[in-house]
Amino acid sequence: NPNVALFTSVTFLFEFLSASGIHSSARFEPFNFYVFTSLTQLICTIIYICFIIYFLIIEIKLLMKLKLKYFYEFWSIIQLDIISCSITSIIIYIWRFKEYNRLSSLFRETNGYVYINLQMIVYVDDVLTSLLGFCCFFGTIKFIKFIRFNKSLRIFVQILKYVTKDIISFSFMFSIVFMAFLSLFYLLFTSSIASCSSLLSTAQMLFEITLMSFDATDFTGADPFLGPFCFSLFIIIVVF
C-alpha cells in the first residue's frame, strides 16, 4: 500500500539441483519506507549524526597524527568501523526515501497497473539492516573500552591473552572437521533434505545439531542407513 509506505516483495524460487530434484521456496518480505515515526526518533537520529561527525573529526586528526600507526590500534579500527557503517547507513536511508517517492509517484500515475520490481529495494533494505546490526555490534565492543577498569574484566582479558594460541589451534582443527562434515551432508542429502539445499543452510543445520536442537527424523527419511550413520558420526566426533 503506497499510501502508507508499506510494500511487500514476494519471490517464488524453483531450484533445479545438480543431484536431480527440484527445491522450491517462497520468500515474503514486507518492509516500509518510513524515515521517522516519531519526534523522539528524529531527535535521537540527529544526536547520533552529530556524534558521528564529532568522532569522524577526531579520527581524522588522529590519522593525520599517527599515520599508518593508526591502523595498528584495535580501538581505532573499531571506531573506524562504526563511522563507516553509520555513514553508509545514512546514505542508504536517503536513497531509500527517494526511491519511495519514485515508487509512490509511479503507482499513482499508473493506478497500480504496472510491474514494479522491488528486488533491488529489498536487497538494499537488507544491507541497511545488516549495517545497523554491525553498528550495534561494534558499539557494544566499544562499550568494553569504558568498563575495562573492572577487575573481573581485566582478569578475563588476561586469560584470553594467555590461551590465545590454544584457541587458534582448536579453531583451526574444528574448522577442518566442520568443513569435512559440511561437504559430506551437503553432497549426500542436498536432494532429499530441505536443510541441506545449500552450503549455508547445511552449515546452519550442523550448528543446530551441535546445539542439540535439530530433529534427526529427517535423516532417517532421507536414507535409512546413511542418514542415522552420518548423524551419529557427527554427534560422536564433533559434539562429544
Rank of each mutant, 00 (worst) to 15 (best):
Y48E: 04
A222D: 06
F74M: 10
L211V: 12
T11D: 06
A222V: 08
L199V: 03
S89A: 13
N101C: 14
K67A: 08
V124M: 15
K151F: 11
I52D: 02
T45C: 03
Q204K: 15
P228F: 07
F14I: 06
F33G: 00
F14A: 12
L63H: 06
V122G: 02
G133V: 03
T202S: 01
V4I: 08
E99K: 01
L200K: 14
S201I: 06
T110R: 09
N117W: 03
N117M: 04
I168Y: 02
I82R: 07
W95S: 06
S232P: 00
F149H: 15
L118C: 07
F149L: 13
Q204V: 07
G133D: 05
F143P: 05
D81I: 05
Y115M: 05
C135D: 03
F214D: 02
H23R: 09
G21F: 07
V122H: 00
G133E: 10
C136P: 03
I147F: 14
I235C: 04
F71N: 12
I78S: 01
K151H: 13
F51H: 13
E208W: 06
S213M: 11
L233S: 11
C196M: 01
L184Q: 06
I144H: 15
S191I: 02
S232L: 10
C196D: 06
S9D: 03
S9P: 01
P224K: 11
F14N: 13
F138Q: 04
A180P: 04
I22Q: 04
L132T: 01
C44N: 14
I83R: 03
S195L: 01
F240W: 09
F174K: 11
I53D: 08
L182D: 02
D223K: 12
L63N: 06
N150E: 12
S38M: 10
R27K: 14
T40Y: 10
F55Y: 08
Y54M: 07
I193K: 00
I77S: 13
L118Y: 01
I176T: 08
I57Q: 10
F185S: 03
I144A: 11
V238I: 02
A222L: 08
R96Y: 02
S76E: 14
E29W: 08
F134N: 11
L153A: 15
F74P: 00
L68V: 10
S38Y: 05
T8Q: 03
S9G: 08
I22D: 02
E99I: 00
I209H: 05
E208T: 09
P224M: 15
F189C: 04
I53M: 10
I237W: 11
I52E: 00
I141K: 05
T210D: 06
L6G: 07
L188A: 13
L132I: 07
Y72P: 00
I46R: 03
S89Y: 03
F172P: 04
T88Y: 14
D126K: 14
L131C: 10
F7R: 00
S191H: 02
K145I: 14
T37F: 09
Y48M: 09
Y186L: 09
T40Q: 14
A19S: 15
A26Q: 11
E208I: 11
E208A: 13
S201K: 10
V157P: 01
I141D: 01
F143R: 13
I83P: 04
F181T: 00
L131E: 02
S169W: 03
I159Q: 07
S20G: 08
L206E: 00
I78H: 05
I176H: 02
